[in-house]
Amino acid sequence: MLVQILTEGFSLGASTGVLCLGTCAPFLVPYLMMGARPNLKENAPLVIQFFLGRFLAYFLFGMCAGWIGGEIRPHLSANLRSATLIATSAFMIFFALTQKFPKRFCFFAGGAKPLKLRAPFLLGLLLGLNICPPFLVGMARLLEIGNLWFGALFFTAFFVSSSFYLLPLFAVSPFISSDRLKNVGFLASLLVGGWFLLTGVFALLSA
């Protein structure tokens, strides 16, 4: 059963990773344009933090889904999807504004720098909680199984295989690191954040 769960999670991530990319890229690309470092070595902490946040989100979500089982089935997907979308979009907009206008946000817990340092982890965590179609498929399977540790293992395997689709984005980030593109990244963050925020609020209200 253990091998089966791991294989199922891995296969799901590998086969639907493009959709994971579609969910994460709108936030990750503008973020990388704003925050990427000029070389791969300096980008390593950023990548590790991002994947750590994403892994934590998957692991915890997997445990919860496996543990609670069928009890969360009726309401979880639609409302949680909207709520996480709103949270991620709000974070994106706030992050972009703090980085562009650091002096205006000096009131915020020691200024913009601490947020910049923790942003990859927070972004990974929030994006990890964003419910994309493959995530829903995985959740449906776990609700059926109803076991805490199987849930965690399933999503760990899912995390590993789907991460391969995101890695290339980090590889190109040094090539898009310039002041001009930082500004474009800022504008794109506001546009993407605003667009998804409206989408999330609309979905929540009409749910």
Binding site: A25, V29, M33, N183, V184, L187, A188, F196
Partner: peptide, 23 residues
């Protein structure tokens, strides 16, 4: 200002990613 002239480029990036995310 250069930052404003690049708005269309930011819009392109945003719509490409959003379109992909929403299919």
């Amino acid at each position: 200002p250069r930052s404003l002239r690049d708005f269309s480029l930011a819009l392109l990036i945003a719509v490409v990613l959003f379109s992909f995310a929403r299919s």
